[in-house]
Design a protein around this nucleic acid. Structure first.
Lengths: 123, 123
DNA sequence: TTCATCTACAACCATTTGGTTACACGTTAG
DNA sequence: CTAACGTGTAACCAAATGGTTGTAGATGAA
């Protein structure tokens, strides 16, 4: 079971969430015990609302979890999200490698000539 | 110093390029020997121009390389790009882990100033 | 109670994104 | 040479993104 179809959108969200320096920084800051959104917002040259939106993007991607503490909302990065991301990368690379292997099988037959950097990175 | 500042944008581009199912699929299809853009385009329910743009995004992120062959342009996925991405993830996780460790150290100390770290943020 | 804080969200705006069609330019085939 | 093909790009469009200000609801402190 490589990727289960419906997950494609999840992967989209994951990569998209990571494609912003501010959001990646948020992930780092919210490691361990969480940070309140206002504390977080104070760290960036943008409005509270903007940071709030960033946190929202991260949350929808499953990269952070929010936990209420009184009137504050603690944000902490969800370790599992990172793992999921890595998983997605692994999946990609595995499929890609498998494809490359099948490729060279085909190319192993005589009469074929590859002009490019023939994919021989195994062992 | 792990931070390479200018690289932040590169990482942005990498993750952004990956945040689209079509582009991820292109990466898989162009493994091994390349595919011409028109061959590629035939595989998707969108115009040649659209696919051409996707390839462009991938190329600017360093995830594919183009090679001219006559009137065709062969696209093949750049293995190093994937490695770079994984590297970025590793860096993130490492920093994150380090931060978690320092966290407990800092919490032991009486007072600490907040390092602004407001850098690297453009849209 | 009253006030300051923190959060949530709406309305708005500029830019980017992802798609379209159309067209011009090389290159290969007949 | 001429025609077909593959590519590159421009002009355009709708929707999403990333930001803003403003406002309102909870919550905690005085």
């Amino acid at each position: 079971m490589v990727v289960d179809e419906g997950t494609e959108q999840e992967v989209d969200r994951l990569f998209h969430a990571m494609a912003d320096a501010t959001r990646r920084d948020i992930l780092q800051r919210c490691t361990g015990d969480g940070l309140s959104v206002t504390r977080l917002a104070a760290a960036y040259p943008m409005s509270f609302a903007a940071v709030h939106k960033h946190v929202d993007v991260l949350a929808r991607a499953g990269l952070v979890r929010r936990q209420r503490r009184g009137r504050e909302q603690l944000v902490h990065t969800e370790h599992d999200g990172l793992r999921q991301l890595r998983q997605a990368l692994d999946d990609l690379e595995r499929t890609w490698r498998a494809r490359a292997d099948r490729m060279s099988d085909l190319l192993a037959e005589p009469g074929h000539r590859t002009p490019n950097t023939d994919g021989g990175q195994r062992r």
